[in-house]
Design a binder for these strands. Structure first.
Lengths: 191, 191
DNA sequence: CGATTGACCGAAAATGAATTTTAGTCAGTT
DNA sequence: AACTGACTAAAATTCATTTTCGGTCAATCG
């Protein structure tokens, strides 16, 4: 059987982007890692950006699968939301590529790495938005703009799960779930 | 009457920091603007950082006064919160120094400018925290950690009032008030 | 004599020319 | 026809030189 050079290239590139980031990954390096002439890469991808986009897309797809696996159509919206959010955050923290991109943006502000993370965030947002819409239709949630609501949910989750840590002890996962429930679901007003 | 050289220095510095930012403000420039020898500045302030800190402190004080002026002890927590938040955001947007610091952090990441903005945010947070505690004591709000709650309120407000704009049409002030009320006060759950 | 000044200093930053690295090409090899 | 890697133009990096800037202090002023 003929060896699949495209796959070799994609795997080598994924490894290198995860390990060294966007900027520090060179096409020569990818070619060497993939045991392939550099020209071969350019028969599959027009340029470095397209190669990176393909790899970002797989990451997003994988994340969707991970989230979807956690989703229980019979369960309540907030149960699902909490489990799926937990999964997504774990995933983001664990997945080398996502971690590396975040560091690269913070440290040297590579525009392409920023764009990649934005694509990731957009994908998460539209995923949540669909689930919010479904919950509204089922009558589990009050009527509201699903886009703004998804946005607020993500921001709140990120605020509690990551921004809070920059100046305080991290909140435990159960604590986050509880706060999320209090603030967004039940509301703060007495009576 | 003897001219108040300290005041001259502080005013010149405030103007220069607001106009050019922290990094681009030189002590020679401040001296010239203040019509004062450079050495004179150093009789009042040990170094550039302390001069900047004094000016940041005035900004924070001024902001507190502005907020407090809007606060009505007889009114409800959320009415006050919305009015005060509106004021604070207006203030932040309008006040040249705050605007310039934010740009400087974004564009060149001047550490001292970042620290200044963080001080501003801390001041806002502790202000809100006090009001939250008061509202809990009055029974207007459910029991909750006032620190986390203040943090969540600020993040939610910033998300709606500024982050949303980066990818969408800005939300009108009344819309923001309404969303804030829906998400945090009443909650999203149906029954 | 105390308040004020600006020439001066070392450290840090800006500059830019020389050097190296890198994305992308294409003539040649398999 | 598929693949390669030496090659090129452009971009990034290096580094020696110059400039700028925060801070000092002996001289000056009122």
């Amino acid at each position: 059987m003929a060896i699949d050079r495209r796959k070799q290239v994609v795997e080598a590139a994924a490894q290198s982007f995860s390990l060294f980031g966007y900027k520090a990954t060179t096409m020569d390096q990818v070619a060497k890692l993939a045991n392939v002439g550099k020209g071969t890469i350019y028969t599959f991808f027009d340029n470095k950006e397209e190669l990176f986009d393909e790899i970002m897309n797989s990451l997003i797809q994988e994340m969707k699968r991970v989230a979807e696996a956690e989703y229980d159509p019979a369960g309540s919206f907030f149960d699902n939301l909490n489990r799926v959010f937990g999964r997504i955050l774990d995933f983001r923290e664990k997945h080398q590529l996502a971690v590396k991109m975040a560091h690269e943006v913070r440290d040297i502000g590579t525009p392409k790495a920023l764009e990649g993370l934005n694509r990731l965030e957009s994908a998460i947002l539209s995923y949540i938005q669909i689930k919010v819409q479904a919950a509204i239709d089922k009558g589990e949630l009050k009527r509201c703009d699903p886009e703004v609501t998804a946005f607020v949910m993500l921001k709140l989750y990120l605020a509690l799960a990551s921004e809070w840590q920059t100046a305080h002890e991290p909140l435990e996962k159960e604590k986050i779930t509880e706060l999320f429930q209090l603030y967004l679901l039940r509301g703060l007003a007495n009576e």
